[in-house]
Amino acid sequence: MKGSVIIAAGGTGGHISPGVALAEVLSEKAKQFGFDSVYIHSLVRNKNNPDLLNPPCEVVWHNIPQLGGLKTIIYPFLFLYPFLKTVLTFRKLKINAVIGMGGYSSLPAILYAILFRKALYLCEQNCVPGKITRVFARFANKVAFSFPLEEGYLIPGKTIGNPIRKRVIPEHLNIRQNENLHEGKKNTINVLVLGGSQGARQLNQMILKAMENPDIASKYKFRLLTGTNLYEETKTKAKEEAEIISYANDMKPNYEWANLVVARSGAGVVAECLVFGLPMILIPYPFAADNHQKANANYLEKEGAAVTIHSTSDDPTPLVQFLLLWKDHSEVLREMGHVSLALSNVNAAYQTVTYFFHDSH
């Protein structure tokens, strides 16, 4: 298959990061997979996304409007002009294959593939497939899943794992970060708190309140990545000693420091925690589309890599209970970490590309 491949990765970091991971593999091995060039198709508003500031290949920017609200009736008209621009650009770039990473921003690239009979491949990050996957899977040559789909979704495809960017992959694979936690010893348990790129006030508040418990403060050390918007607010409210960071461009040192992660259950963060063999306390974002974060968290809890707290308040009680339970039983964290590592796939990006373009099955 000569010509070029384009990866439609816009929307949120959850779509962009795995798309960039695929672009890294394809850029290095384009000829091996039968392509002349590789491109990423992303929204103009993502120009400052850290993954797209120094991308592995050229980014083709577009400005497709978001669906919803009052615009719904006139959406086809708003969509038409940017879509026609996409068609002309793709023809010029000789796009012969499209990889859709999900989200409304992948729509123009997917429609291009369908209308002009180009190869179409879809990546689904969550246990509950997004609308784009549900609608367009029937047109796709192949669909790759990051996690097993929740019961009731019958979309043919292969579960491979969420593609991980090179700069996040651990130096030492099969890392066992909790082997140094032994019962009865005084060593501190490091807790990394991740609220996502926008931050999560609920998580920050819950942690600050939990730290007021003297037993927790004496055993656990907290590092909060608050998100830029909530940094000042969290810093002001912190009574106890915690490391408070607004944003980290390089996540690897944070994962290597941690023994435990408290986070939302977006597919990207979860996949990164898995490759570092980290146990997780997951607090799903309750307003995520189709409640997909709840499904992701439930899957990891069922497997034994995480525990979940389904709550919209910042009441620290369930969090405090887990932390007190594990304070003198770090073997639980070690075991969860082993499960976490067993569920990870550090080579998901390469395997996904191979599945799409080399496997005949």
Rank of each mutant, 00 (worst) to 15 (best):
residue 181 L to Y: 04
residue 88 L to W: 02
residue 167 R to H: 14
residue 108 P to I: 02
residue 121 Y to D: 06
residue 147 F to A: 02
residue 121 Y to S: 10
residue 192 L to Q: 06
residue 117 R to Q: 12
residue 185 K to A: 09
residue 94 K to H: 15
residue 176 R to A: 10
residue 193 V to E: 06
residue 144 A to C: 13
residue 93 L to P: 01
residue 140 A to W: 05
residue 188 T to A: 09
residue 90 F to E: 00
residue 125 Q to L: 11
residue 127 C to L: 00
residue 198 Q to V: 10
residue 122 L to H: 00
residue 189 I to Q: 01
residue 117 R to K: 14
residue 94 K to N: 15
residue 91 R to P: 00
residue 170 P to S: 13
residue 115 L to K: 08
residue 92 K to V: 02
residue 154 L to F: 13
residue 168 V to L: 10
residue 141 N to K: 15
residue 138 R to N: 11
residue 118 K to R: 15
residue 145 F to N: 00
residue 157 G to Y: 03
residue 141 N to P: 01
residue 93 L to D: 02
residue 174 N to R: 13
residue 195 G to W: 02
residue 193 V to H: 11
residue 123 C to W: 09
residue 166 K to N: 12
residue 122 L to P: 06
residue 182 H to E: 07
residue 98 V to K: 01
residue 172 H to V: 15
residue 114 I to E: 05
residue 137 A to K: 01
residue 194 L to T: 12
residue 125 Q to Y: 05
residue 197 S to V: 11
residue 187 N to T: 08
residue 185 K to Y: 06
residue 123 C to G: 04
residue 170 P to E: 13
residue 176 R to Q: 15
residue 106 S to W: 01
residue 170 P to M: 13
residue 93 L to G: 04
residue 96 N to P: 12
residue 185 K to L: 01
residue 173 L to K: 13
residue 144 A to Q: 03
residue 94 K to T: 15
residue 137 A to G: 02
residue 152 G to R: 08
residue 87 V to S: 07
residue 135 V to E: 05
residue 171 E to I: 14
residue 104 Y to G: 11
residue 195 G to I: 02
residue 109 A to H: 02
residue 130 G to T: 06
residue 115 L to M: 15
residue 107 L to T: 14
residue 150 E to Q: 15
residue 134 R to G: 09
residue 153 Y to C: 08
residue 185 K to D: 11
residue 102 G to C: 08
residue 180 N to M: 12
residue 88 L to F: 10
residue 88 L to M: 09
residue 127 C to A: 15
residue 162 N to P: 04
residue 145 F to S: 09
residue 126 N to M: 01
residue 121 Y to K: 10
residue 133 T to G: 12
residue 145 F to L: 10
residue 174 N to H: 15
residue 145 F to Y: 14
residue 198 Q to M: 10
residue 109 A to I: 04
residue 144 A to M: 07
residue 193 V to Q: 12
residue 198 Q to G: 12
residue 164 I to K: 02
residue 186 K to T: 11
residue 103 G to S: 13
residue 111 L to V: 05
residue 116 F to I: 09
residue 177 Q to A: 03
residue 152 G to S: 09
residue 180 N to W: 14
residue 168 V to H: 02
residue 183 E to P: 11
residue 109 A to N: 01
residue 140 A to I: 04
residue 169 I to E: 01
residue 140 A to H: 11
residue 164 I to Q: 03
residue 191 V to P: 05
residue 91 R to H: 02
residue 157 G to K: 05
residue 168 V to Y: 07
residue 172 H to W: 05
residue 131 K to C: 07
residue 174 N to A: 14
residue 164 I to W: 06
residue 159 T to L: 08
residue 191 V to N: 02
residue 196 G to L: 05
residue 195 G to H: 07
residue 102 G to T: 11
residue 151 E to K: 14
residue 169 I to K: 14
residue 146 S to D: 07
residue 118 K to M: 06
residue 176 R to C: 06
residue 139 F to I: 08
residue 91 R to N: 04
residue 161 G to E: 08
residue 194 L to K: 07
residue 114 I to S: 10
residue 131 K to T: 14
residue 177 Q to L: 08
residue 155 I to C: 10
